[in-house]
Every structure is written in C-alpha cells, then in structure tokens.
Simulated scan of single mutants.
Amino acid sequence: MPLLSLILNILWVLTGGLWMAAAWLLAALLMVVSIIGIPWARSALTIAWYALLPFGQTAVRRDEFRGREDIGTGALGFLGNVVWFVFAGWWLALGHLITAAGLAITIIGIPWAWAHLKLALLALWPVGTEIVTTDEMDMRRRAMGRY
C-alpha cells in the first residue's frame, strides 16, 4: 500500500471507517445466521474490508471490469439488489449518511464525508460490484484503451 493511501486509511479509520466496517460485519453475520443470506454475507464481508480501508481501492461494476456478464450482473443480480436493499441496504446507507453529515460539518472532514457518501450509494445496490485496487483498475483501463 502506498504511503499516502496508508495515511488516508489511518485517518479514515478514525473518522468513521471502523464503526461502519463493524456495521457491514454485523450485516454479514445476520445474513449468515439466516443461511439463505450466505451469498449476500460474502459480499458484505468484502465491502466491510473496503469500508475499513477504502483508499487505494475502488468499487466497479463487475461486468464492466471483467468484460462479461455473470449471475450477479443480470436479472438475478437485480433481484438480489432488491432483496439486499430491503433487508440491509437502507440502514447501512443511513449509517454512512449520518457519518458523512457529521464529518461535513468541518472543512477538514469533507473528503471523508465524500467517501462515506460513495459507500452509502454502494450500500444501496452492491450486487454485481467488485472491489479492486486502483492499480488493477488503471491496468484494466489501459488494456481496454480507455485511459
């Protein structure tokens, strides 16, 4: 991890990253307990790690990144997102919004508030999304001629 990303991630943990990652872990735990929610629990664990250390990583649509559709990016992915929204998405997004509002009060907290807003959008509709490093994303863009 580059030094700048490390510093930003340390500051992030202090400005809401830790408790929001814990909220994502709680969502994953509740989904595992239901057994039916195990596929969503895996995604929640992945996003919990992203919510803990977001700098140096990015969330991308899997079909755009991989260049092909899969079960999570088609009609079943849409249905999965609807189920996710009803049972976990709205309250995780609300947590990120409340944290963002608290951080946006101070000028120095605005960059972290912006990151929480991006995570709030991800919390609403995460199925079909993949977390990749920014280096992987840059290499993929170059390979596809979009850079």
Rank of each mutant, 00 (worst) to 15 (best):
L124M: 09
P39F: 02
W90K: 10
A23L: 10
F85Q: 08
F65Y: 13
I10W: 12
R66I: 12
V33T: 11
L30D: 03
I110T: 14
I7V: 15
R66W: 05
G17S: 04
W125L: 05
Y50P: 05
G95F: 00
E69K: 13
T46L: 07
T133N: 08
I35T: 11
N81C: 15
N81R: 14
T15S: 10
A115P: 05
W112R: 06
G109Y: 03
R62A: 15
A48T: 08
A93N: 01
I105M: 11
G16P: 04
F65C: 00
A44C: 04
A88T: 10
T99L: 09
I107T: 10
I10C: 11
S5M: 13
A143K: 07
M31P: 00
L52I: 05
I107E: 01
T15L: 12
A75Q: 12
L4M: 12
A120N: 05
N81Y: 07
A120G: 03
R140N: 14
V86E: 00
A93V: 03
W19R: 12
W40I: 05
D135R: 15
V32M: 14
M1Q: 13
W112E: 05
V33Q: 01
L6I: 13
I38S: 09
I35F: 10
A23G: 00
A21R: 04
L121V: 07
G80Q: 04
G109H: 03
L121D: 09
I98N: 03
L92C: 07
G128C: 08
L121M: 14
P54G: 05
L76I: 05
A28C: 09
